[in-house]
Design a protein around this nucleic acid. Structure first.
Lengths: 351, 351
DNA sequence: CTGAAAGCGCTTACAG
DNA sequence: CTGAAAGCGCTTACAG
């Protein structure tokens, strides 16, 4: 028998066989071409249902799994979704990441995480690296990015959803986003404190990222409305947020402005630290001074007194943003391109 | 001029041009073959230094960046490193992830994160998905995995470093790992409480993952040594760890075993919750009962009283494990294949 | 030390 | 609706 006339099994003569089950193995088993197998497996319309069936049977019998690298190379699109968050040391963003990642994984996507440290040029560099992988989608925190980053996002043509922030209501051509109105939340919590009879409400903040600043604006406008705004009630510290810093800020405020009767901390960790400091210093909360936080982080309901705060729907934001991105990647237009998930004032014992 | 004899620019006739700068663009500019350009750029020995120089100049002039998908497909190895951690809701693992990810990124690797939720079959499934991407390396939490997972790790041939745990000292053929001895840490903290005159030391735990159990064994052996062990001093709850649960456990212990004079909580969040509960119930710490935690999580130094605990080097573990993995990926044998980073007893006010 | 060629495992115009 | 062929952008035996 003339060996040369036998159909050669491809891998048997390859000098770089990998042993992997490939699409052409499936195609051969199903008696169709690789093109058809490829189309059948990806659920492309315009394939004979009978062939789809045969290919699927062959595929699962052989235990075929597509090679992501080959797929990415051929289609110019990977199964990665890139996500950009500021910090891993803030539970808020970890909750966001966790929820988004869970949703994306269920849909077959791998999450590529990038931590920007609130640094615009680090964000830009991370985005560059992520775009090399030709992600199928992009999830980015906030709406504030430098010009190069925005250009990279645009020219990449990759579907993108922004997390946490919402654009001004009247903004035309608004990007896709899921979040809530930080400014409103800040104003709302402040009005809550006012409604309880507080007159001298300080605002204490750390980190001073864009969302913190929006809460500040909300606080300002509520106090201005009430005719109670004073610039000296602002205590802004650019250092990273922490319980310890909350304690420091609390002492500082009590000392510099003894007449203050409430403090709105821009984040729960600061407020928790303030509550501990109050306990330590014997300052009674809320009778001497009310304390409120933001985000309802873990532990806030265990403080003594329990902490009044704003519950923010971060897990739901992560999930909804991932869902919106999934529909964009399918080529669909989301029902609500700017999705407001709201917030809730949680009155507890500290106010 | 006979057009057909002109060298055709490759992309100009392609029906699928991507516009990307490719290796062959660089090779052409440097006047070498693609093979040589490839070898020069990857720093393979056996390339003329003069050519390396020319290729590098051409590469940076053109702004060439290699395509990770093409590279992965051709070499059967991506620039991904997969990391498997149990939870994102425990700051411990987030610190691990953060440190590892930072170190790997600096070396040019993308981190692929998988969250197992302490579920062996979810871990197995995640590992399968990650291995499809042909990661260059693997970082996994703990040494306890099901048989299939272990087999997947072995047969994949991917270099792997285990995080947090260390094998028994006499184990032959031990895997690469970076961590500390949980059992010793548990025993050490218990001995510390004993040295302060405590006689009835309870052990309270949640989650009950392998590392928690090791701390339990350490506590047991220290109490047995002292002739003070009693099974009824163990309070084990499989629910997830949280401040709230710590409060519940504290109340329960105080009620069921009023003679207890110290409690060793397996994690700081439980201990923090217990401290808050003590404050609420008016149980004085440490005079009535000492409280100790584990891990020195954020906030423990801000409690009232501040929390005695064990400082664990999780950031250093993440970084050192990533470094060890990097050397394995380079084909080098790590100097210390089982790296013990130790722990530190932090005596504060609660004991 | 260098290059031509094959190959990695897919997708996708193109032609039928 | 289907298939043959080209192509994605690299790496790597192989031959020299």
């Amino acid at each position: 028998m003339p060996q040369a006339h036998l159909p050669l099994v491809k891998n048997s003569k390859s000098h770089r066989a990998t042993g992997r089950i490939t699409l052409s193995d499936v195609a051969r088993a199903a008696g169709v071409s690789s093109s058809t197998a490829s189309r059948a497996l990806r659920g492309e319309r315009a394939v004979d249902p009978a062939l789809i069936e045969r290919v699927q049977v062959a595929s699962s019998k052989l235990g075929y799994v597509p090679d992501p690298a080959a797929r990415a190379l051929a289609s110019q699109r990977s199964n990665h979704v890139a996500i950009l968050i500021p910090l891993l040391s803030n539970a808020l963003f970890v909750d966001l990441l966790d929820a988004a990642q869970k949703t994306l994984r269920a849909a077959g996507y791998q999450t590529l995480m990038g931590v920007t440290h609130y640094d615009a040029s680090e964000e830009e560099q991370l985005l560059r690296e992520q775009l090399l992988h030709r992600p199928a989608g992009l999830l980015v925190t906030g709406l504030d990015h430098n010009a190069v980053t925005r250009k990279l996002m645009d020219s990449s043509q990759v579907p993108c959803v922004h997390l946490m922030d919402l654009p001004a209501t009247d903004q035309a051509d608004a990007p896709y986003c899921v979040g809530f109105r930080q400014t409103e939340a800040g104003a709302s919590l402040t009005r809550h404190l006012l409604s309880q009879g507080r007159k001298r409400i300080a605002f204490a903040a750390a980190q001073l990222d864009p969302r913190v600043m929006q809460r500040l604006y909300g606080w300002r406008s509520a106090l201005q409305e009430a005719g109670l705004y004073e610039p000296t009630l602002e205590f802004l510290n650019p250092a990273p947020s922490s319980l310890a810093l909350g304690g420091v800020l609390f002492e500082q405020i009590m000392q510099q402005r003894p007449a203050v009767d409430a403090i709105f901390f821009c984040n729960d960790d600061l407020a928790q630290g303030a509550l501990m400091a109050a306990l330590r210093l014997g300052v009674s909360v809320p009778s001497r001074v009310a304390i409120a936080g933001f985000n309802d982080l873990t532990g806030s309901d265990q403080m003594l007194p329990t902490l009044t705060t704003v519950r923010t729907p971060r897990a739901r934001i992560g999930e909804a943003a991932a869902q919106m991105l999934l529909s964009l990647m399918r080529g669909e237009e989301p029902a609500t391109p700017q999705l407001d998930l709201g917030f809730e004032i949680l009155q507890r014992q500290s106010s």
